[in-house]
Amino acid sequence: MKDCVFTLLTNRELAPKTFEMVLMGDCSAITAPGQFVNIRIEGFYLRRPISVCDVEGDRLTLIYKVVGKGTEVMAKMTPGQKLDLLTGLGNGYDLTLCGDEPLLIGGGAGVPPMFLLAKELLKIGKQPTVILGFNTKAEIFYEKEFMDLGVKTIVTTVDGSSGTKGFVTDAFVQVKYSYTYCCGPEPMLKAVYNASATSGQYSFEERMGCGFGACMGCTCRTKYGNKRICKDGPVLKKEEIVW
């Protein structure tokens, strides 16, 4: 973990209420895809945890959804603004367990961490497939970015307005896979957990106090004891999850 000041380079709306922020600063504490940063926002006491979408040298990309007042303020931030970030939080995904054809599944605000994960898996010679789940066509973001990486990209929409109609699990039949990586709302995690034939890793969300393991605000039960989502997670292995 590091506490660093970042400079906002760009902040753009990708889809309704979904924004992409590119920041410049010291990213050296970010060591794995699936980790997150905790952002201090003027006027709010608690920081806002946001998952890492991409890291390239000193450039950090975050994608966030406007869900409350804190993220509303973030959406109005302008280039040049300085931001205090705690970086390199959480365990992130383990890339060593996935076989040759991992399946990456992101739903809505769970899509962003799949981007860095896909990049890192490609770097070590894996052939990932990614399923991106949205409610409707207007909400889709990063489909092109994933395709540009050279990964097989499948989009699902609940209303069928684009890609495969239905939930992310409805696209499983199109894919041969050795492992699953998943991030999204809890009902989606559970559906993937039940539908996937392989082992995998699932990223969880919880309201956090500190984000670095001190306050026990985000503890969950696992088969191997209590874990802090912020420090021992947010990624849990399929074998340890207790629903």
Partner: peptide, 18 residues
């Protein structure tokens, strides 16, 4: 959980002595 909520200039916790 949830055990944490935000307030103006502070927070509320209900960790419950874990």
């Amino acid at each position: 959980t949830p055990r944490i909520a935000e307030i103006a200039s502070g927070m509320i916790n209900s960790v419950g002595l874990q």
